[in-house]
Design a protein around this nucleic acid. Structure first.
Lengths: 218, 218, 218, 218
DNA sequence: AATGAATGAGACTTCATTCAT
DNA sequence: TATGAATGAAGTCTCATTCAT
């Protein structure tokens, strides 16, 4: 799993070394096959859903053959799992960064709440796939994803609970429920947000973070 | 829309109604075939998703044959559309009831916001199907559902806007965004709510309505 | 499983009623689809082996579509299992008939030993498939076939043991080994016997039975 | 046929021999790649059958890559052919040894008949492959194998015929049939013989040779 | 001597739907 | 009102083999 961006991890059979050291020599290195496949799959899964996207369509969009896909990914399911992993890792890393910061808990929660909105909008295809197609993942992979998701949820929840303990947040609502409240709206973004709409990602993020912080006022 | 319970509307071919008015004569009237099919489809679509449920599985679960299904419903797609229609009509009716009430806008919005939570939890299978499988509906049916959904959204939004105009709600957030914020969390219920969990539907509803109302405080 | 000849048993999904009562009315009733499929599969499996025969080839030879095959048989494996079942039932029935006869054990064994040769030659395709493709059956079906085969073996062995106890057969060789000796040669028939060869099935049967009886002389 | 152990003959492309003569210098010379491939293929073909074994599985079991396999063997088919050749040469050599001995024909036949049983059990994987997968060989290779097999059969048959001419064997049965009778049971060994069973290879060989000799008594 | 990415054909199976009865 | 046999297209995946390195 060389690079965190798009490399196949579990289930991927092959070891691929992209363009080994040739980046400087050949200015226009072609995009490696695994990345091309991930990009095509992401777009198509987002557009039509996982079950409605055939492997044939993916390889055609990526300009490779089916054999190549199965050389790098063990199954169609693996491709979906990779997309999940990519988003989960990204979000977990960012949340950890905010949660560990040296700031009052209100500021840390607010920044984290706003950032996840921007990140979700910036990866709206991934997010749409995430919320729409999780149940189409194989049971064991689903379990794994859920475990990673839970870790994320708990980190976020601990921020809420800390604020409640410190008395800076309203303690009337169970912190788990607060997290689900906020993440419901993040989840929902992929349903209604349009890049060409009136509000920029940052504006949406500010508004949603404001709503959360106001809802948590003592 | 012949009967309000579960009758097929669009796409249904047959003339049903079976033994109308015989309910009093035969104490244990068997559940009519269309209802049986709807119930089976609802359960299965919710459990495995629309694409992963075969027509064969539905008819087996309903104890009928494929011919019977196609006698009552024009297609598998129709079944899904019926499930949507059932939930949409129910929610629209309830929202209309609250919005038209003779009460201050805060009270009307709060009641509506809490009620949709309870109703969603009471029909969690329908709700899960709604949020998960909408994109699997045929384009024209999808358009129709979206139009009905928009009407619902707008009615809810108008309550928010009215409160903002009257100065009882904080006007910093665009009302459309407020609605999406709340409905994100409603949507999300089908992901995390478990009937055997710690909170009753009413308790969850109170908490979520509280969060909304606090977020809207001026 | 209406008729013992060629009806699908386990794994077969459909119920088919062949030509219901129309045999007398329509002189040239078409051969029912399941039978056509069995016949085609038998010929092809025997010619090229199970793995080398594609489902496509079978349905083409039977003049039906793939859907029809899967309507009657749950899998390609099922087809193979049916062929086994047909031969096993036939041979078991015949062996039981000879073993239960009211004759000296030498006569009963001799008749059984000769008959299995004739029956095998008469169903040489089935026999070839049996000995060549058993290991290509799914593990659980293989287990089932082996159990039936064992029952057959034991019945035959008991005849040998009885003769040894009575002193009419040489008791130097363990009876199980005697059975494997004879059945090795039966098994082998599908490798070398040609219908257009010098010896008729009956002649081969007499010779092989003679060899067995001589080998068993005290 | 460069080395008698396991070297590829026909179809092998490469010049092998690797580290010839170094056996004395390096005490623990690694097993050469072609042998490793043959051993892996033999085990896998025997376990799962030829068609069910993929080239990928063979190279993984042998600890090499596909390129290496195709460097030494022209095709998967070639591997199978090599396995056949190895067994055929071994058996022919042994039969020739017994047939040419300076002994009465009864002794020569008996020894040959017993020896082929022991040799078959000692190479049970090869034997299983032989009897199960011959028909999966390419037509021209199949023809070649059959020719070698026929030569073997004829040598054995001539022993029977000689004994019949000399009057030491019963002449009622055609000698070809006698050979098929015995070889059927040898063939069958791979179906039922288990190394952990009650009888040793020698004991089985004695019993089967006894049965044959008794069957041939005048 | 050896690698392993890539091919392309073909494998088995599923499925929504139709239609004669 | 209901059956269930039959279709035909499409689905995912496997595999022996090639070839540039």
């Amino acid at each position: 799993m060389p690079t965190p961006e798009a490399a196949p991890r579990s289930g991927a059979r092959g070891q691929h070394g992209a363009a080994r050291g040739t980046a400087a020599q050949r200015p226009a290195a072609p995009v490696p096959v695994p990345q091309r496949l991930m990009a095509a799959a992401t777009r198509l899964f987002s557009e039509r859903g996982y079950d409605r996207t055939s492997v044939q369509e993916i390889v055609e969009a990526a300009g490779v053959t089916k054999g190549a896909l199965y050389h790098y990914f063990g199954s169609k399911d693996d491709l979906l799992h990779e997309i999940y992993g990519r988003l989960l890792r990204l979000q977990q890393d960012r949340l950890d960064g905010y949660a560990d910061a040296d700031e009052p808990v209100e500021a840390r929660l607010r920044r984290a709440a706003a950032d996840v909105v921007v990140t979700t909008i910036d990866n709206l295809d991934d997010a749409r796939i995430f919320f729409r197609s999780m149940h189409q993942l194989s049971p064991e992979k689903q379990k794994q994803v859920r475990a990673e998701r839970r870790r994320y949820h708990e980190r976020f929840r601990d921020l809420v609970a800390e604020g409640q303990r410190r008395g800076v947040f309203n303690a009337a609502t169970p912190p788990d429920l607060v997290v689900d409240y906020h993440f419901g709206s993040v989840h929902h973004l992929s349903t209604w947000y349009r890049p060409d709409g009136r509000l920029s990602p940052q504006e949406v993020a500010e508004h949603l973070a404001d709503l959360l912080m106001r809802a948590l006022r003592p």
